[in-house]
Amino acid sequence: MGTLIYISSFLLFLIGLYCVVVKNNLIKIIIGIKIMGYGVCLFYIMISYKSNAIAPIVLKDAKNYTDPYPHAIIPAIMAASFAAMILMLATSIRLYEKHKTLDMSKIKELKG
């Protein structure tokens, strides 16, 4: 049961990777990258979990907290993947107006 949860986050990562590698439309590639980002963040959440422990908010009478490190790491990664997505969308707007298509298999100006 324990390893099944880890396998699910890895599977999400692989689904994202499949989208990036196989699909031709640029928007689908960007969605694939976001899915990869979510998969990695899910992995970090899985790491921090301990059974019979409460969330890491300081209360008077609790003894067992889950790990507070990922709470600081995950928003930074979410913001980084969000910024990467914004940059890719801005680039794809300009790409669309120069090439008139979003199909990556047709955009092959640079050859060799």
Binding site: P56, I57, V58, P68, A72, P75, A76, M78, A79
Partner: peptide, 12 residues
């Protein structure tokens, strides 16, 4: 400093 979530999350 008391809750999970720092300036970054609140800012977002």
């Amino acid at each position: 400093h008391l809750l999970p979530g720092e300036g970054f999350d609140g800012g977002m």
